[in-house]
Amino acid sequence: MYETTLWLFSMCLLLGAVVGLLAGLLGIGGGLLVVPALVWLLPKAGIVSHLVMHIALATSLASIVMTSMASARNHFKLGNIDFSVVKILAPGIIVGGLGGSIVAEIIPSDYLPKIFAVIVLCLAIQMLLSMKVINSKPLPNPLACVSSGGIIGLISSLAGIGGGSLTVPYLSYYGIEMRRAIGTSSLVGFLIAVSGMIGFIYAGAGSEALPAFSVGYVYLPALFGIAATSMIATRYGAALVSRLPTPTLKKLFAVLLLVISIKMFLS
């Protein structure tokens, strides 16, 4: 058992480095890669099939807690976070994040990869087409914002992502400057990840089928491996932005996501 756990930890160190590098270079959320990678790695470490997707989603969200916290701190120092927007979105975001973990527990495990695949497919198309809609309208009324936050939180939690791919376009649509939209999204992503992670921990608590070193559905060896290298690699990815053709790389990454989503949907 310890040999396979050590192997998985080593693989997650490599995964974290790749995720961190791409996150810094392309500005994408790590969950889009972490979840499918863990879906492939966890069975090889002896994790039973009906728990794989739950553990992948929960562990991805737990890793996003760490990375989004660091990102939100940096954006706070730069004055890029609009706390009035966070305040109005937060109730829906938190409820949606928790709701995603509840829905994931109710849905048969065979359907979860397909739901993830559909979400990733939509995000990949958005990324590939670089769809940017700018609107000068103010944010809608508080109830509509809470509802929107709930949908963003629910979808993000179900996909194990921080929701930046949803939050940034939403805020941009209502005329919020891109710099502040990204900064605000980092704090919103932290709230999604925390609420989703707590929900998955609670949902998995007491399950005898979970592997050792688990806290609910969060698998600690994978979490620590991803977190250890991703937070370091992000800095190097950010440093490469001015040296590499990032728009082209972003489109290539979107194509990779399309392939991953189709493969997961058909498997």
Rank of each mutant, 00 (worst) to 15 (best):
F200C: 01
L129W: 10
C122S: 14
E177W: 10
V188K: 07
A193T: 03
D110E: 13
I182A: 04
S195V: 06
G175R: 10
S157K: 13
G183P: 06
M131R: 08
Y173G: 15
L166D: 06
A181D: 01
A159E: 11
S185K: 12
L139R: 07
I161H: 03
I182M: 07
A193L: 04
N135L: 07
I198L: 09
I119A: 03
A144I: 15
A104Y: 01
S165Y: 04
F200Y: 15
F116A: 02
K114S: 05
S157H: 07
I119L: 04
M131A: 07
A117M: 03
G149L: 09
S148I: 11
G162L: 07
S130Q: 14
A104C: 02
P169H: 02
G196I: 08
M197P: 05
S186G: 09
F190A: 05
S130G: 02
G183I: 12
Y202I: 15
M127E: 00
G164H: 04
P138R: 14
A203T: 09
A181Y: 06
C122M: 14
C122N: 11
A124R: 09
L139Y: 06
M197G: 06
S157P: 07
I182V: 15
S165T: 11
P142A: 08
G204E: 07
G196C: 04
I155M: 13
G196Q: 03
I176S: 02
L158V: 08
I182Q: 01
C145L: 08
S130N: 14
S148K: 04
L158A: 10
I151H: 04
G164Y: 00
G153W: 13
M178Q: 05
L171E: 11
C145G: 00
L154D: 06
S130E: 14
Y202S: 07
L187D: 08
L171A: 06
L129E: 06
A104I: 02
